[in-house]
Structure formats: C-alpha cells, structure tokens
Simulated scan of single mutants.
Amino acid sequence: MSTTVQFVFDIPCVWSYFGFTRLRRALARFRADGGQADVVLLPFQLDPGASVEGEPKLQVLRRAFGADAEAAVTRITAMAAEEGLLFRHENAISSNSFEAHRLIAVAARQGLGEEMTERLFRAHHTDELNIADLDTLKTLAEETGVRWSHEGAEETRAALELVRNSGVRGVPVYRFAGRPPLTGAQAEQTLLAALTSAAQEHPHHL
C-alpha cells in the first residue's frame, strides 16, 4: 500500500500542531502495517504581516479573544496535555512563520521534512522560541540533522500562493489521494482510515 498525503498548516496554529501530531501517529501505524506514505508539507500563514521580531503571544491572544484569552489559554493547554504535548504561553513569541516554512522545504529535500516540522512546532509551542529568528532556525536545523541553506524562498512563496489560490482560508487541511479534503484537527483513527482507503483506491496518486 502506497499513497501521498498533503498537509497544509502553519506553525503557530495550535490546531495544526494537534493535527500534525495525530497525522504522524496515524502514519506510524500505517507504516508499521507495511504501508508507504509520502507527506507533502504545504505552507499557510495565518498572519503573513507578523514581524520577524515578533511580540508576546499572550498579547496577540488578548486581541483575538479579549477577556476570554486566559480561559482560552487554559483550555488549549489542557487539550495539549491530553495529546501528550506541553504548551507554554507566558513567554511565547508570535512572529512571522515564512522562514520556518522555508526551512521545512529545505529539510523536505533532505528527507527530513516531518522531523523539521515537529521540531518547529515544539520550538514555538513548548520552548517559547522565535521561529522567525535565523540564528534560532539554524540551531534547530542542526539539532534535527538538516543542512542549513538560504535557498527555497521563491519555492515557499509559490507554495503559499498555490495554497491561497486553492481556496484554503484556515488550517489544518489534509488532502488524501482521490478523497475530499479533511479540515481541522481530525482524530487519529479518521486519518488512519483515510490513509488506508487512499492507498487501496488510488495508489501512487495525488
């Protein structure tokens, strides 16, 4: 069984992190049963106007949720714990995710796209690092075994435009071969079923 899945996401998006975590668990089960799956990681920016320097994430959340911001943070942190993830918000930085997506494209060409994506999610949501800072990104690349490169900016811009032109307005989005797209933080079992069906019905086909 062999198939391809496209995953559209943004690093600062908590639902993308949940969705990616569940997708990787579904992929692990699929691959353990002999399945083969290529993951195409497609970028989306929830806030393309965010600065490289960034600002405190709590500030951004307060603008979005107002008086409910603290309750939202508590709720999301508890949900993350149920996924086995540790979320920290006190010193988290909300910044531009373009360079992080570019690094993922670089890593993908080296066969480490999934690993780099996971590390960047963790850097933002757990380690409270600025994922727009190049020195930080170089350190994360080295940790993950990715050879640093300044290439991929045009490729990333083109991918962002392609995703926007496809009608995506929120993330995460999963596209399995020959099946309608799935959106939101889908359950692991749902993703495993979609992988299996896609592999059986449309092998080697996007």
Rank of each mutant, 00 (worst) to 15 (best):
L160R: 10
Q36V: 14
D38P: 00
D133Q: 11
P56S: 10
F65P: 06
L46G: 00
L58V: 15
F7K: 10
P43A: 07
T21L: 02
L23R: 03
L195W: 01
F9S: 07
E161C: 10
Q200F: 05
L192Y: 07
F65I: 09
R164N: 10
T126F: 02
E154Y: 10
V5F: 09
P48N: 05
S166E: 07
E142A: 14
T144Y: 11
Q59P: 08
P43R: 06
A132N: 02
L192P: 06
D33R: 15
R179S: 03
Y17H: 10
W148N: 05
V163S: 00
G49P: 14
R88K: 07
E161D: 14
E142M: 05
A177W: 03
A141F: 04
N91F: 12
T3L: 08
V8E: 02
E143Y: 05
D38F: 11
P12M: 04
A153N: 09
E201G: 06
H202E: 05
T183A: 14
S95T: 04
S95F: 02
H202D: 04
A69E: 02
G34V: 01
H124N: 04
E115L: 07
T77Q: 04
M79H: 13
I11A: 02
V40R: 08
R175N: 04
F20M: 06
R31C: 07
L42N: 14
A159I: 10
S95N: 11
G113E: 05
E128Q: 14
L192G: 03
T183M: 13
Q59T: 10
E128A: 14
K138Y: 00
R25T: 14
A72G: 08
F9M: 09
T126H: 08
L61C: 11
A64N: 15
F176G: 03
L160K: 08
A92W: 00
A177K: 07
H89T: 15
T139F: 06
P56T: 12
G170V: 02
A100I: 12
E53K: 15
T126S: 10
A141L: 06
A50Y: 02
E128P: 09
V163G: 13
I131P: 11
P12Y: 03
E114T: 09
A105T: 14
